[in-house]
């Protein structure tokens, strides 16, 4: 499987990563190499195999419905790039 420049752009957009136009052919080439490696998977028939999402054959533990957290806004927002009146700020969202 190989990826062309258009596909790389499309994936980069989905992943919201800016890639310089000049770097796209390089990404297309290395990503295609990785996909060639990955395509080795096709060699084994897995028709009757149950997918394994997780190494442990366990089930989800449930947490008691108790409020344990207190307001730590100051501390959390001390690492935020841009805030005002306790809100995180982003460029205007148009709906």
């Amino acid at each position: 499987m190989s990826l062309d420049a258009e596909q790389v752009k499309k994936i980069a957009h989905l992943a919201r990563i800016e890639i310089n136009e000049a770097d796209i052919p390089g990404y297309a080439a290395t990503l295609s190499n990785i996909l060639d490696l990955v395509d080795q998977m096709a060699a084994v028939n897995t028709d009757d195999v149950e997918p394994m999402a997780h190494p442990m054959d366990a089930s989800q533990r449930l947490r008691a419905d108790v409020v344990t957290e207190t307001n730590q806004r100051e501390q959390f927002q001390s690492v935020a790039p841009k805030t005002e009146d306790g809100l995180y700020l982003v460029p205007q969202v148009i709906e």
Partner: peptide, 14 residues
């Protein structure tokens, strides 16, 4: 083709 296939092989490896 990729994710589910990989998960199936993951089981075989395991």
């Amino acid at each position: 083709a990729y994710y589910i296939k990989a998960q199936k092989l993951r089981r075989l490896i395991s």
